[in-house]
């Protein structure tokens, strides 16, 4: 099960993050989770939002480059080693983890967003484990 993630390119300029968020707010788009990654002179904002396609459209109108892509969102229990189990299964299958970040959804346990080199197989692998995978509806 995949979840749609919205990524937005941000130049390292004063106030760009605020501007992107304002565009979403002004258009009634709800932010469920937000994560910001920095490179040397640009940043990537990764969001789970209530309506990703609409969000992309309104961002484009405001001259932001963005993209909607699939990720896998999981919830793991706080027991020791449960994240390790998941990551080991993925790496042992020869799949690369492109990036991973914590989802700030207020539920029991830890929620993570995962992007791998082979999302379909990752989906299969995790499906066979006792790990909860979020659906779009559950998050939205």
């Amino acid at each position: 099960m995949y979840v749609k993630q919205l990524s937005v390119f941000l130049e390292n300029r004063e106030g760009r993050l605020e501007e992107a968020l304002k565009v979403l707010k002004d258009n009634g788009i709800n932010i469920i989770s937000l994560s910001l990654s920095d490179a040397s002179d640009f940043g990537l904002l990764r969001l789970i939002v209530s309506d990703p396609d609409e969000a992309r459209r309104v961002l484009k109108e405001s001259r932001f480059s963005s993209q909607v892509s699939d990720i896998i969102a999981i919830r793991i229990s706080h027991t020791v080693g449960s994240l390790f189990e998941v990551l080991r299964a993925i790496t042992e299958a020869g799949i690369n983890i492109e990036y991973m970040y914590t989802l700030s959804v207020g539920v029991e346990g830890a929620s993570l967003a995962l992007k791998t080199s082979d999302l379909a197989r990752t989906d299969e692998l995790i499906g066979g484990m006792s790990v909860h995978m979020y659906t779009q509806e559950e998050l939205g």
């Binding site: 993630q5 990524s7 390119f9 990654s37 490179a39 640009f42 990537l44 990764r46 484009k60 480059s65 963005s66 993209q67 892509s69 492109e98 990036y99 992007k115």
Partner: peptide, 12 residues
């Protein structure tokens, strides 16, 4: 531009 965009820092 959108055609260059990627959700991965590494690709950018």
């Amino acid at each position: 531009e959108e055609r260059f965009f990627s959700d991965e820092i590494r690709s950018l």
